[in-house]
Design a binder for these strands. Sequence first.
DNA 1: TTTGAAACCGAAAAATT
DNA 2: AATTTTTCGGTTTCAAA
Lengths: 139, 139
Amino acid sequence: MVDDVDRKLIRILKENSRLSYVEIGKKIFLSPSSVRERIKKLEDTGVIKAYTLNINENLLGNSLEVFIMLKIFSGKFKTVISEISSYAEVKEAYRITGQHNVHMRVALKDQLHLQQFIDKLVTFGEPTTHLILSKVGNS
Amino acid sequence: MVDDVDRKLIRILKENSRLSYVEIGKKIFLSPSSVRERIKKLEDTGVIKAYTLNINENLLGNSLEVFIMLKIFSGKFKTVISEISSYAEVKEAYRITGQHNVHMRVALKDQLHLQQFIDKLVTFGEPTTHLILSKVGNS
DNA sequence: TTTGAAACCGAAAAATT
DNA sequence: AATTTTTCGGTTTCAAA
């Protein structure tokens, strides 16, 4: 279904998803049209979910990046989760198992902004916060 | 420095980083050449760090996705971190504050694979594992 | 008033789809 | 064959000199 060439394509696109089919083809000695067909199939079958972007949040004025895990109060996940993931500060969010229900990566201007953000979260559950020091590797 | 138009460009590229300059320009009523100039500047100044990819790990044969936080044994972060981020299973890794030193998102074939992976990690530190149930929103 | 920098546009050649 | 990318010259704006 997904063979070795597909995995190479995925690896290449993970490094740079804006490469042209020609450039991708050169890297694996495959014609542009073959590259295109394979990538289209990966998109259509849902293997590739989205093409996206990594941002330097500091340069956008967000000097703090944190993980926040939230232990949501009784029951109503659905509303809390959709509310939370609508916040501009929340860059990613996952439902997880364990002590907490939600794990999110959040970008914030400064300490005051963090405090205000946590004040909002405490109406939904108990948050636990970890500062992000750096991203490691390009795994 | 980064104005409102730039923020729109970033929002658009975050949704789909493979859009053409023409398509991006239509969305914000800007010529393709201007779109290109602005995006190039965002790349050159480092605001845009990378164009990348979201993958459905299940369809690649990885039925488990987990967060693992690691409390690394004495001192030598550097080697441990570079070792860890070289593993194919590790999709992202961050240095963080708190009880643990590293936070990573890991994709694995099955429970046995997870067990073997944890067995490797315990030589470096104390791991704590949380299953990922689902990704929420498209934040 | 002039100068220079920054942003935008349109047209044409080169490259990609 | 059609579309997109790339390059480049020209225009406008704005603020500093």
